[in-house]
Write a protein that binds this DNA or RNA. Structure first.
Lengths: 321, 321
DNA sequence: GGATTGAGGACAGATCCTGACCTAAATCGC
DNA sequence: GCGATTTAGGTCAGGATCTGTCCTCAATCC
């Protein structure tokens, strides 16, 4: 016998792997009597996991969605898919999800068997970066740093500051902040004896040193606000406005992420408002619309589009204007 | 008392939420004696979860990565992040991961509490589609269909065939296949009494009918091969070749997904080979390189780039040539 | 070397678990 | 409507398990 706890986990695992299970089959898989299966189901219900049951032929048990998350029992491939999915989500897929994605990734990677971790790393290098406009961040760096934040463990890395000089830093990481398509580490720089903000895409070879520290209180409390203060004025934000020669509904269907900034003008045109801190990426997004457009502002974007048009014209073999 | 099974899950949850735990604190949280905590740790080890322990001051317990995946105990935000991450991974992020991502998503959504499901759906509509070149697939459709495959339950949907005519289908779903940036459903069409392949981006309002069926054997066995046979010749594939006026290393760093097709020519140029079945998307990828390029073939791509250049020139306010 | 923290054996009492057996209720197919 | 199938759950007895207490060791840090 393998103990009831282990058996309950197996039962949960079975119930997650398929939707409907006849009691007799569960009894066979778990190598217990049908009575015990009924009791186990009762136990799961007591633990808060809603197991439905249907009587009659074609009846059976079924795990429904409840009010709380049950433990997820994943097979190896599923664990890998989740790790890969979280890595991409940690970049810049959906507003506000990134920091939680990193937290979940840390939790997953803590228990991810090493042979799976290798497979994830191998897949990770083949990732299509959705944020192909800006600098890319290695998700591995994010998890290393986030682990440091969570477990109060110092992190050492090489940092390339804005003017290009490289230094080695030893930092007590406080939090990881995602702002405007970039990742920042807020931490206490042990070498400078002060709070600092680091851009994660500018640091290399981060590693936990093994040194534990007692958490300090960040002045102001809110890490995101701290980052905003430190980078104030460090980058521009471009607000674009354009007239799109296609119905809003069609664009919304073809380019879902643009939908929020669309306002219909008439049956055949709509106005698009969108913004970014990266001109190149903004231009690409205009290009992706796939229909005729007139860009009204900002002038920098108009210039960027001219440049891009010239370059593509040249790519197609025409002399640039 | 809450039973040892429940307490073991709580212990696992605690060990996943933070890395280091002194035994006394665990005892307090679980409301048992220290001796019982030691016994619980022993139980977890027997179940195969490697719990490390360190003696002495600053000692404690720590859940390490083992050889098998332990049950993941997620909080609500983490579950959402995973759902969102899997939805994007299910599109086209990393070769070969998509089908597993959908499987994991089905497992997760089966037990995802309804209020969390609503949050995921709300976030999903804001997703930046990485595959903005081609038609997009609603992840919700994928999970509905994949559930049908897993649980042998019929699915009904409206299908828009290539010539634009719409029909309603009632299908016994067999498998969901991801091929060449597109999703296909292979299933037994109950109306036509035959095996059919459906493009998921062409179907709308899929829903489980509740009718169960007994699995049939797919002729040939391999669903992917079946899809390939059915769509053979249905779409063109464009193989592009271009000279990029930048070092291969720089492009590889800036646009990771292009790296595999890069061949250095000299210190300042490289050759890019890449292919796709969607001309528009191919053109966007060229545009994303952000440097000067000469495209040699295919002629269709050169024409597409000219069109794009003209459109962007116009967008920037210049008269198209 | 002393303080702290985990390891684990022994024990007694309480609790829990399992399989067997039985009856009831719901559902499906004929 | 009837019979077959499937879950629901009560009861019982024997055995296994679990818990807290008490104790001694071992490892580690200061």
């Amino acid at each position: 016998m393998r103990g009831t706890s282990s058996r309950l986990l197996d039962l949960l695992s079975l119930l997650q792997a398929r939707r409907d299970w006849p009691g007799a089959e569960l009894a066979g898989r778990l190598e217990v009597s049908g009575r015990t299966v009924r009791r186990d189901v009762e136990r799961l219900r007591e633990l808060g996991y809603p197991v439905e049951s249907l009587t009659g032929p074609a009846g059976g048990y079924r795990l429904r969605a409840g009010t709380a998350m049950p433990p997820l029992l994943l097979d190896e491939d599923e664990a890998i898919a989740i790790a890969v999915g979280l890595r991409t989500a940690a970049r810049a897929s959906v507003a506000g999800i990134e920091e939680t994605a990193v937290r979940a990734l840390v939790k997953l990677e803590q228990v991810l068997p090493s042979h799976l971790r290798r497979r994830v790393a191998a897949l990770g290098s083949a990732t299509i970066a959705p944020a192909a406009g800006g600098p890319t961040v290695d998700p591995q760096h994010l998890t290393t740093i986030a682990s440091g934040c969570r477990d109060s463990e110092c992190v050492r890395f090489d940092y390339r500051s804005r003017d290009g000089t490289g230094t080695q830093r030893d930092v007590e990481p406080h939090s990881l902040v995602n702002l405007g398509r970039r990742w920042y580490l807020v931490g206490w720089d042990r070498g400078r004896d002060d709070w600092r903000t680091f851009r994660v895409d500018r640091l290399t070879r981060p590693a936990a040193t093994g040194v534990r520290f007692t958490a300090r209180e960040l002045p102001g409390g809110d890490p995101a606000a701290f980052v905003e203060r430190s980078i104030a004025g460090a980058w521009n934000r471009y607000e674009a406005r354009a007239t799109v020669h296609a119905p809003a509904s069609e664009i919304a269907k073809r380019v879902p992420h643009a939908a929020s900034g669309l306002e219909p003008i008439d049956d055949r045109r709509c106005e698009l408002r969108t913004s970014d801190d990266d001109l190149g990426w903004l231009a690409i997004r205009i290009a992706m619309l796939g229909v005729d457009v007139e860009v009204h502002e900002p002038p920098e974007l108009i210039e960027e589009l001219s440049r891009l048009a010239a370059r593509l014209g040249a790519a197609a073999g025409r002399p640039p204007r």
